[in-house]
Amino acid sequence: MKKRGKGIACIFYGTGYGNGFPDVSRAYAELQPDGKVAIYTGATEVGQGAKTALSQIPAEVLGLSVDDIIFINEDTSITPDAGTAAATRQTYNTGNAIKMAAEELRNELIKIAVKELELNSDIGLKMKDGKIFLEIYPDKCITFSQIAAMQEEPLRKFAVFTAQTVQIDPETGQGAPYWPYTFSACAVEVEVDTETGKVEVIRGAHAQDVGRAVNPTLIEGQMDGGFAMAMGYVIYEDLGLENGKIWNNKLSSYIIPTSMDMPEIQNIIVEDPENTAPYGAKGIGEPVMISVGPAILNAIYDAVGVRMTEIPVTPAKLLKAIREKEQKEA
């Protein structure tokens, strides 16, 4: 028989290295001869979209499009250390460092514009599409490339961002181990085949706090991927570990979700800007997978009335639990 059930779970997730460890990101923003701006930072693009999201931030600061940002992050000899691409920290930490560097560059550009345009102050100056101009009299205008041409050395600004956390007391755990925290909730419906023990996730709704969405498509992509990875974690993936040996060390035996396994997922982006974050944006790379797994487990219980305290819930394990329950009731 096929039985359906629904389940929900919610979580919080602390961003960054945490626990008082100096969590530092560094970045340079450098004006190029053609008026584009290069960002130098050691933040790795692992597929999560760091290069894109972290280009959008300086583009916003400088009134440029992302095409005018040259993002350089591949070479340690020319980029400053921006910490690891982990702990969901790059949007928040390196995002802040890049924003600060871009703001410094912006201030410098404005200062130069005031001087070159022979203005009394920076009041009313706008920065857009590589131009700095006075809105009330647009003839007072200078381009980024004109400013670049005046420099002997490229205009280059550096910024460091260090996150704030407080080491916990070793006896009581009291402190402020992470900041910021990110929240999410997931609700799912599953169908359990009581003859085979197979669990199928029918649909899901996944609400993720993002602070502010820098790039909604990238966020949805992370949410979809997190959902799939969580499905693998709770119902498919088994290393076959035995006395230190991994028996399932191939993709033919270590089963990760395929396109056929994935349900319809409704991604709900929840915005509530965090005041210490760049434009309010918090990282989401890890939290997007966390609430999905327990939601599935709760839905399995709702469907067939068995509590699965051990993952992965393979068909064999679930079938055994269902049979035990039936025997107990009989």
Partner: peptide
């Protein structure tokens, strides 16, 4: 939090719970 940390800003958890629950009819 249990660690004694005050969550001062950006805590939209209730919003996340209600939105996910509504979407799935819970």
């Amino acid at each position: 939090t249990a660690n004694g940390q005050t969550l001062t800003d950006s805590v939209p958890l209730v919003d996340c719970i209600t939105k996910a629950a509504k979407a799935i009819g819970m």
